[in-house]
Write a protein that binds this DNA or RNA. Structure first.
Lengths: 195, 195
DNA sequence: TCAAATTTAGAACATTTGTTCTAAATTTAG
DNA sequence: CTAAATTTAGAACAAATGTTCTAAATTTGA
């Protein structure tokens, strides 16, 4: 594994475990037996590490959305996509936990997230429409409500983790199940019938 | 105004404006023409400032819940409570934006928030039940779904602000309206009829 | 093979941060 | 009024942090 990759992996692990507040470039370097000077040879500034990790996340999301487009239109698909989405949120948890702080610190990330959201928004609305055409989703939902539902989706999928950290602190399977349940419940009142 | 209050006000303003990441006790002191040494005479540790601000928030929430218990059971009440809740989230925005980080840093806050959530949870379920008895809310909702709805409520009211910061960045009236709209839409599919 | 490029460790630096200390100023109480 | 308590400013300190510098080690490529 290239040193750059090693640094990114170590940084991700430490940020996730200990929070961006208490992890420094020295800690990251030390955790893989690297000198501080060397770390800064690969990543001149601390932000560069975070930027790189965010880019990993963003491109993983792109893949997810590509898969979603090819998936069949039914409720099992939603469940499967929720599982993948959960894995991503979980893998890059420190980003979601410090999203605003990071976004204000590194403006590129804010812009990039804005674009991501826009892309996802369109996809979700299309997906809901498709569900309605398949008779799964209620077809009497005004567009503005559909957009509102998408917003709820985003808030809950991005911040379920933070809420969980503050309350039940589910881990592993339990966490995934609660995440899925919360997401599904959002859809529940809009669903016409179960398959 | 007592120095202690001045410090808390200044700290709140700076944390909200610039984020906990970049605000130090020296900044807070300087912003009100106070020496650093004096600030630490009033608040020995930085955490003590944050703890005090969180306590303000928690007791404001207690008041809010007290009011809620005495309010009449209808949709206008929800709207009014949402407005007050929004003002609180907005006033102490830095807490909501850094909730997990702060809670892990100051365990007392984590515990205190856990208790707050539990109290609120019970109240919400009772309120939904009351709405159902008044024929406003659907009465065919299983308890587990009602609890899930409450969870959605909490996530969205606590993190709407973070999401807003990352996306549209509504301010003032626009922000309040979007917040209310998002909260109301959560209830919308559960409502039987409009008054 | 061997010179050039890359990678590395470790010292060095300026700045910042939270906190403490000290001594003076101010307020409070009897 | 005055002695005690409180509050204040400002210096001082140790630790930490991001970053840079230097020189050695290692790798690469012709």
């Amino acid at each position: 594994m290239k040193t750059k990759e090693k640094i990114l992996n170590a940084a991700l692990q430490l940020y996730n475990e200990q929070g961006i507040r208490s992890v420094t470039t020295r800690h990251i370097a030390a955790s893989i037996g690297l000198s501080g000077g060397n770390l800064h040879y690969h990543f001149k500034h601390t932000e560069d590490i975070i930027r790189a990790l965010f880019n990993e996340l963003a491109s993983a999301y792109d893949d997810l959305m590509l898969n979603a487009q090819q998936a069949s239109i039914n409720l099992a698909t939603i469940d499967a996509l929720a599982a993948i989405s959960f894995q991503l949120v979980n893998k890059y948890r420190f980003i979601f936990i410090n999203f605003v702080e990071i976004a204000n610190w590194i403006p590129e990330i804010k812009a990039s997230y804005g674009q991501l959201i826009q892309k996802r928004e369109q996809q979700f609305v299309s997906f809901f429409d498709a569900l309605a055409q398949h008779g799964i989703f209620r077809d009497d939902i005004p567009t503005s409500n559909k957009l509102g539902l998408v917003k709820q989706f985003f808030i809950i999928s991005d911040f379920w983790l933070s809420h969980n950290e503050l309350t039940r602190q589910y881990r592993g399977e339990d966490a995934l199940n609660d995440y899925k349940k919360t997401i599904n419940l959002l859809l529940w009142p809009y669903i016409k019938r179960f398959e």
